[in-house]
Amino acid sequence: MNFNSRRKTYNLVLLAIAFGIVSLILWNTNSFFKKFKEEERLKMEIWATAQSELLQSSENMDLGNLTIKVLQNNSSSPMILENKDGSIRVNNMPNKKIEDSLYIRKKIIQFQNENIPISIDQQGEHLATLYYGNSDVLNKLKYYPIALLLIIILFGAVIFFFFKTNKASEQNKLWAGMAKETAHQIGTPLSSLLGWNELLKMENINQDITQEIEKDIARLETITERFSKIGSLPTLKEADIVKETREAYEYLRRRSSKLIHFSFIPKVDSLPVLINSSLYNWTIENLVKNGIDAMKGKGSIAIEIVQNGKNVHILIADTGTGISKNNFQTIFNPGVTSKKRGWGLGLSLVKRIVEEYHNGKIKVLSSGKEGTIMQISLKVKST
């Protein structure tokens, strides 16, 4: 049995135990409710017997101290005593309502639904009928199982959230570990490439070739640095957002298909922003590559930079197929992708870089048949 199978079995056992405990508590509560209701019924029958003696005392006998005590001590259950002559006597109910005959009749119907009325008879003669309702304690006890279930549901939700958060944390650690290991593995061949490029220079190879190799080696170094920073808090430094965006734009423009028309439209000359250059460039590249994929390698990509008060907005527009409005938020979730071979991590990483590392915002500004506009918003550094 593998680890996942054991863990699944363990969770099922815990669920079964929890279900058993809840069932036992509810069963005990229900039994206690019935027992308490039976005791209240017995108490009311004793009161009815004492009331019968009271009704007959003036004619046949003196009223004993025990009877008086029984009649006086019942102060918990609301009661309506209807004598054979139709007169009504009310106990343990609001005084303001006693004179309201409509209210009394409604209460009689309610008490009949809660408890079977007790007929007070003496020597075969019907003297009165006792209607009584549940006491406050019994009414509160009736809602106890519901309150218990709500508490259990709330507790279960907290446990579920805890395990879900814990699982997400484990996944983040796993991805961070894989990223750092990837950066470490890239480091070895990268060092060799640097050495081979130096040898090529010594062989008087065309300088244009060696210079392009140097650019790609520098690119690999940048990628290695990015992967090594995943899972750790990056250092933010003041940089010109226009210059940084232009560098990412130029790199992609030179290496993209000629069928893609690129345009860079900065509405400001320069703006100081606290960023991590490596991660910011990665963000721009991810968004541009997503746009190129959405256009299936043919169309237009435009990057625009505008200032709005204390914020700067970087807009990346493409002429691709667009995104459904229902997916404006979900596309940033891990695993969500429209590509057949995609992992759905690009936009998730972009969101994390922008919002968690740079305290900015990223969103789908608009999308339709004419294309999609993604917007990154960052704070301009105050001078």
Rank of each mutant, 00 (worst) to 15 (best):
D62G: 10
K142W: 12
E203D: 04
I109M: 08
M202Y: 03
Y249T: 04
I305N: 11
L150P: 14
N204S: 04
A179C: 09
L233G: 08
T49S: 02
N60E: 08
F19R: 06
D62C: 03
G322Q: 11
I108A: 08
E250P: 01
H184I: 00
T210Y: 11
M93E: 05
H126N: 06
K8T: 05
S338T: 07
F262C: 07
N286P: 00
I205W: 09
D318S: 05
E40Q: 15
I373C: 07
A157D: 08
A179Y: 13
V90Q: 07
Y132I: 01
I241Q: 12
I316V: 11
S23I: 01
T321L: 04
L194H: 11
L259Y: 09
S75H: 07
I116H: 13
L138M: 07
D269H: 13
E370T: 09
M61H: 14
K43H: 04
T129C: 01
T210P: 02
A48Y: 09
K369I: 02
K164D: 02
D293K: 15
I275M: 15
V158I: 15
N113V: 00
G322P: 15
T182G: 06
R254P: 00
E170C: 01
T188S: 10
N276L: 05
E170M: 05
N115R: 11
L150K: 15
E125Y: 14
L349D: 14
V364D: 07
N311C: 00
E225I: 02
A147D: 04
Y280F: 15
I209R: 14
L194A: 13
S5G: 00
E45K: 15
L130R: 07
A168S: 12
N308C: 00
V350G: 13
V137R: 14
N276Y: 07
